[in-house]
Design a protein around this nucleic acid. Sequence first.
DNA 1: CGGGTAGTTGACCGGTCAGTCAAGGGGTGG
DNA 2: CCACCCCTTGACTGACCGGTCAACTACCCG
Lengths: 197, 197
Amino acid sequence: MVGGAGGEGEGDDWEVGMEQTRERIVRAAAKLFLTRSYHAVGIADLCAAADVRKGSFYHFFPSKADLAKAVIDLHAAEFDKQLTAAQDEGLYAVAVAVTQVQGRFEERFGRIVGCPFGNLAAELSTTDDELRAHVADVFARWEQRLLAACRRYDVPDETARMILAQIQGLILLAKVQQRPAAEITAGLRTLIAGVTA
Amino acid sequence: MVGGAGGEGEGDDWEVGMEQTRERIVRAAAKLFLTRSYHAVGIADLCAAADVRKGSFYHFFPSKADLAKAVIDLHAAEFDKQLTAAQDEGLYAVAVAVTQVQGRFEERFGRIVGCPFGNLAAELSTTDDELRAHVADVFARWEQRLLAACRRYDVPDETARMILAQIQGLILLAKVQQRPAAEITAGLRTLIAGVTA
DNA sequence: CGGGTAGTTGACCGGTCAGTCAAGGGGTGG
DNA sequence: CCACCCCTTGACTGACCGGTCAACTACCCG
């Protein structure tokens, strides 16, 4: 078993520390993919940031694309946690979760760096079908949860997709136009309010 | 017929023909950036697709990034034309224009390839600030037109941004989940209908 | 103790990347 | 006729790309 069994108080700080190599790589990649982009980060950069040698990297990941999948899974797990934590906020739970995640990114990086899924989707879904499918899966599960919430609160099914699209669109606009995360929250709340009215 | 206006016989079919070299390069780039991505297309690919030698390319464009700007301008001009052509559709004009453009992409490429602006924005706005600003400008002008329409039809100002975000989000989702362009149209119309109700 | 295995290392690979350059063609104006 | 300039050409550069490999270490297990 890797890592000291039950020890390791799940590093909440999201910063590179003394964790196991594989995790250090994934976290460094998560950071670099966000602040730059998939293609703009080389394996060498990754290794330097994670303080790992190249051969070691390829011990854990058969390819750069597989690392991307691991990064997606990391973000998906984090987002899922946030969404569950905000469950009792009703339809606004998703707004709270997005605010939480994007707010933290803004704090860490000083600007909006985009949605971890949307970024990779936009850049890679035309060139790497496996990766595309992987992201599509995350979105599908996300939409499912939203759909369940819609039904619980007596809102049309199509609203789920509408909210998901709004989230992606707002984050993208905030990124390219360099707006604060608060604007994403506001815009999203406006939409949800309008739809539940 | 996309090309339309203009004195000289420009290739109406959006395919590479006998146009001037510079235009051939930009059109080839527009196509390749859409079907792959910015980083996934090399100058060599570009030149092959446009039947131009590398030295010639650098006669017209100081760098790859400058080519990207030209590509953005090409798409912006085309979209502007579509938007103007659909002016009398009221708030739905933007839905018509997006449908027109995305429908043509779907026809040409057999799938949703994303928004020309959104794609480049997502991939490059963290690494190339000039390019980021260029795309931001396109979005800003686009939002302005939407805002004017909102006021004309007595709809809250914030709706402009909401629609723009919805467009970007719907296109991104359609791309990653491989849905037909018709779904983008439908989703967009749903939002507009809800907002004008 | 001996052997297997998980992890690590740095040198190395061919290919591709964006970008450069000196040379030359071809039309136009003097 | 020549000179000028826009455009074209293809060979070239050095850096960097993702990925490979054989050798080595450290630790667990029998």
